[in-house]
Simulated scan of single mutants.
Amino acid sequence: MADAIPDSDPIRYEQRDSVALITLNRPEYRNAQNSAMAYALDDAFTRAVNDDSARVIVLRGTGQHFCAGHDIGTPGRDAHQSFDRRAIIHWDHVGREGVDARYARESEVYLGMCRRWREIPKPVIAMVHGACIAGGLMLAWSCDFIVASDDAFFSDPVVRMGIPGVEYFAHPWMMNPRTAKEFLFTGDRFSATRAHELGMVNHVVPREQLEGAVFALAERMAQMPAFGLALAKKAVNQAEDLQGMRAGMDSVFGLHHMAHAHNAEVGADALGGFDARAMKAR
């Protein structure tokens, strides 16, 4: 059943039979992620994990797009606000300066949260429509499955800022290394069909069939033993990490912060002078 959650809340939660449906709810900003959304999403995931009747989790976005990335300039941007840290043990970023502040925040809210969500012991399906850009990729890539509508597209354009990719650097594992370079070096949008050909997306369906296809897949998984699913998920995740995924992310996270520091030293700010409007114009 659906909860009576105000539309102003950044995350909505409801349950349909054995499926927990979690919705990103900042449609006026294309579901751009601020910290409030990240922590509300973590609360929703935790709720679904703790509810034995929720066998499968579905993540979607409301409005025209799944998620257009990190919040880099809306009125609700909260990069300098404290939250109850839970992904890592580190000091608060508030009141710190330079790399100290940015590294602490992004270790928690971005890399740390996505790693935490990747380990959820239940199947998680990303239902992607419209834009899945930069930080949106991190959300979708943390899920076990991606089912996309035929109007969906994927991109990580942050090399335009002089940054080597988003914080959760899964690119070489979500696609092949040569394609990951194309994805990053050009900043081009990959269609849902292209993403499916690369193995990044499980299924592509017409937009009007997206919800039905996702729930049909979820219902099939819900029939499997919960502990068996948890073990199978851990087995695949461990195999990815043995292939270098976790260590690779750690190494690139350092390069990511080198880029931020370089931008701040030689330019206007750590984002190379870009905001959401400037990125869209490119």
Rank of each mutant, 00 (worst) to 15 (best):
E108H: 01
R47M: 12
G254P: 02
V128A: 04
F153N: 06
E182P: 01
M245R: 14
Y168R: 08
P6A: 07
C67G: 01
C67D: 07
R55G: 12
V147G: 03
E14H: 09
M1Q: 08
T46A: 08
R96T: 04
Y13I: 15
S8L: 05
G95D: 07
G254D: 13
Y103K: 07
R105A: 04
E182H: 08
M245W: 13
A79R: 10
M279T: 01
R55C: 11
V158I: 11
A79G: 08
G76F: 10
G199F: 05
A276D: 05
R105K: 09
E208I: 09
A247L: 11
G273P: 02
V99R: 12
Y39A: 06
L139R: 01
V128G: 06
V252E: 08
Q223C: 09
A48F: 06
E219K: 07
E167N: 14
K122L: 04
D3H: 10
K233N: 12
H196C: 09
D144R: 06
L139P: 01
F145V: 14
H257K: 02
D144N: 14
H93R: 02
M224L: 12
H70D: 06
D71P: 00
A278I: 14
A68C: 10
L242Q: 10
S107M: 10
L21I: 13
A259E: 02
G63R: 03
C114M: 15
S8H: 11
A170E: 07
P225H: 06
M221G: 02
V58R: 03
E108P: 01
L139C: 02
E182G: 05
A79N: 12
R277A: 15
R194I: 15
D51K: 07
I89F: 04
M37E: 08
A54T: 08
D250R: 07
A216K: 13
T62A: 13
P164H: 02
G254I: 13
E182A: 13
H171C: 08
I5W: 09
P225V: 04
H260E: 03
H203S: 10
T62H: 04
G267H: 00
P121M: 04
G76I: 11
G112T: 01
A195C: 10
R178M: 12
A247P: 03
L137N: 08
P206A: 13
K181T: 10
P10R: 05
A79L: 12
F153G: 12
L184E: 01
A79M: 07
Q223V: 11
A261P: 05
I125V: 13
H70P: 00
M138R: 02
A281P: 07
A281T: 13
A268T: 12
E97H: 10
E182Y: 03
G272D: 00
G95H: 03
H257Q: 03
R178I: 08
T46H: 02
D275C: 00
W117K: 03
M200H: 05
G187P: 01
E167V: 12
W91K: 12
N202F: 15
V205C: 05
A192V: 10
S149C: 02
G165N: 03
K233A: 03
A278N: 06
D100N: 09
G98L: 09
V58F: 05
S142H: 08
L41R: 00
E106F: 06
D7P: 00
D78A: 06
S18T: 11
N202M: 14
A261N: 11
H256W: 09
M258F: 10
